[in-house]
Design a protein around this nucleic acid. Sequence first.
DNA 1: GTAATATAAATTGTATACAATTTTAACACT
DNA 2: AGTGTTAAAATTGTATACAATTTATATTAC
Lengths: 219, 219
Amino acid sequence: MLDLDFLNNNYQDNRPASEIVAESIAIDILTGVLRPGQRIIEHTLCDKYAMSRTPIRGILNQLSSFGLIRLIPNRGAFVTGVTERDIDDFFYMKSLLYPQCVKWAIERITTEEMAMLEETFDFMEFYTATEDFEKMKKINHGFEAIIYNASHNAELEKTLLRYDFFIRYANINIKYPLNYLPAVLEEHRAIFMAFKDKKPDAGYEAAQIHAYKSMLRRK
Amino acid sequence: MLDLDFLNNNYQDNRPASEIVAESIAIDILTGVLRPGQRIIEHTLCDKYAMSRTPIRGILNQLSSFGLIRLIPNRGAFVTGVTERDIDDFFYMKSLLYPQCVKWAIERITTEEMAMLEETFDFMEFYTATEDFEKMKKINHGFEAIIYNASHNAELEKTLLRYDFFIRYANINIKYPLNYLPAVLEEHRAIFMAFKDKKPDAGYEAAQIHAYKSMLRRK
DNA sequence: GTAATATAAATTGTATACAATTTTAACACT
DNA sequence: AGTGTTAAAATTGTATACAATTTATATTAC
């Protein structure tokens, strides 16, 4: 599967080669090296990544399910465009689903998952204090990924991860002011406290507020 | 791509063989012939459908992206379970996204798409009058599919189609009373009128009501 | 008899070869 | 010159063969 952490490319690469290549192609699409509408010839990818067509075709299937390319039978793969309006839409769609995801997660989270969430939140406090922006971005995604998973609804988890994928892409070049960090931490703290207190509705509201303010910060 | 209309298996089959096989496997999963957690051996599918492993693997990739199976590297494909709670969740998630989808669709629909919607609604009135339940089910999905598409957000469209896929599966054995038809028609009429009047907020509210009542009808 | 290890079988991952289809180019015709 | 047709090239779809990995079985040690 496509690992969403790839934009922070400082991970251990003991994963399947096909995953690494899939990410590389995804980056090429998102950064405009491969342009919207452009046709992708399988053989050129084979040459570039020194792979045969079989795994390349599997990768193209994955990218297709991720919405980055469009596969037309007997015609090939074509790059999908992502507009600014699409990104706005993703923010909005996330603001609709995320609060309910938090609510379900609070109702359904396991002891192990809760322990992970607590540990992650500790790191968030630490990195906010040390003003480590890159680490913070990474840990924020980890925090939300745990919540998505704790909703115990695989489809909802995949949906939100997909939205984040595009949202993160949109934010890749945006440099938020450093004083956003404490504000984001407090929004996350409100969500975290709802988990601690096992209050689903409080979590729902806190998530709504966070999603709304995230949209405002984008502007 | 996986065609969502396959449960009404009265279509012309001039589509790629891989699509037909994908649908057949999907039906086996949804009807319990292939049980949750069960491992799927590629070779058995090859024998059953008289295909080599290459296209079968492509199909497994599609089913994976659709959430029907889970692919584990070097281990194979495992059938995903869909619980009653999952179906409830899908209803709820749809009720969160569908109203916004209607709102965007009203803002963004093209003249051609609007013409299709009008034609489809005419059929809905006709089939409601003739009490043709099966035709009605089909046309209802067509009506919503046009709206999803008119939102001009490919991800939202795919998300809602996926939810419908599972919701329809859950409803496959349920026989709703015939007097539901006029009620559903009136809910759809309210949505349709919002399109005619180009009133996004009215559409949003009508869609909310429809989604809510759909949840109640399931009980 | 049980557990650990080694071996064999089965299964998945990849590469290559060939078939079917589409795209490109060349050519004749008006 | 422009259009329609035909042939060649390129590209995608499928089948098969082999490599890598996992799973199942058998053997040995205790």
